[in-house]
Write a protein that binds this DNA or RNA. Structure first.
Lengths: 183, 183
DNA sequence: CTGAGCATGTAACCCGTTACATGATTTC
DNA sequence: GAAATCATGTAACGGGTTACATGCTCAG
């Protein structure tokens, strides 16, 4: 993972750091990267011989540095594409928060906390659903990645909202079962 | 996020870095942390006045440094528990890989890649399901956090496997529709 | 003249991983 | 005496965030 491969992949055609930042921002639910990181990573890639760059006059503003893949860059990208999928562990700190709320405080507090978590997820889900219905009338092949990402996001968020609901219900039982408030 | 709060939370009773490492390892599907990080973080917390420590003789091996929360540590923990849930962005680099496989190479390659992704998720799902059925005969209240985490993991992984299947099907259509191999 | 957008960066920090060092005690 | 377990660390690196600096051009 890491931005390196993303940039390498996005540089199918020559582009500047600024361009790439735009592109990444436009796929906001997929990835995020700050300009500072992008520029730094680009220079790193160039030092490693995976990109080459040249300065270019721009009509507006200062010169732009336009990057393109070298042969080495291409084959590094290819290797990555042939490599095993990285399916890393997530660390959902929310779970830890619930745990401590339950143990050190009151299950009821954990419950209202979970309700806030649910709101967050639900809000994001709503955004995704809006985007989905906006994209409904377009050719599904046009933005395949966007659509796949959207599908994944939708499914994941639905699962999480569902989980919140069930967890809230479980905690509700605990609370009503007359466990001591404030340990 | 961050180990700091996790340690702060786990230190309900005094414990050494070693103890905490054990505890964290025992909740392996929830969190992971290396000893080096744990020891460093503990010292950081002590420097910030959130923990205090004293050396203790141990029967086996060298002295142990036993940490406990200070009042400041307690209130920092409380603040965290009162704070908004952090529901961060995930960066699924797998999506980027699929995208580039599709665009720069062949949708069929993306498809076999996705099949590997599916296998990964399915394998993890199987682990979780095994754990679930192992825990079935226990009191569900006994390890509440463990159970919630398990539920969340199950739901998320199921959603992902499902997504893989659908995505594979979609890519299958694309491939058979006679798109040019190798762009 | 101001402010928005173009365009690139530096420095400091945070969180985490990897590899390795040290040394004691117990068990085989 | 070798290996396992107890117990604590250091150093270097990787990946990312935050805050800020710089300076240009064009529209209002």
């Amino acid at each position: 993972m890491s931005l390196r491969y993303l940039l390498l992949g996005l540089l199918e055609n020559p582009a500047s750091g600024y361009d790439l930042k735009q592109k990444i921002d436009s796929m906001s639910h997929l990835w995020a990267a700050e300009s500072s990181q992008i520029y730094g990573t680009l220079r790193g890639l160039e030092q490693d011989g995976l990109l080459r760059s040249k300065a270019q006059k721009s009509e507006k503003g200062p010169d732009r540095r336009v990057y393109s893949r070298t042969r080495a860059g291409q084959s590094t990208l290819d290797e990555w594409l042939d490599s095993d999928p990285e399916v890393g562990q997530e660390r959902l700190s929310v779970l830890a928060q619930i745990h401590f709320l339950c143990r050190a405080r009151d299950p009821a507090e954990a419950r209202t906390f979970l309700q806030r978590v649910r709101e967050r997820f639900a809000a994001r889900l709503a955004q995704y659903e809006a985007r989905r219905s906006a994209a409904e009338h377009e050719d599904p092949k046009a933005d395949l990645l966007g659509n796949l990402a959207l599908d994944l996001g939708l499914k994941t968020l639905r699962a999480r909202v569902e989980w919140c609901d069930e967890a809230i219900a479980k905690l509700g039982l605990l609370t009503r079962a007359g466990r001591p408030r404030r340990a």
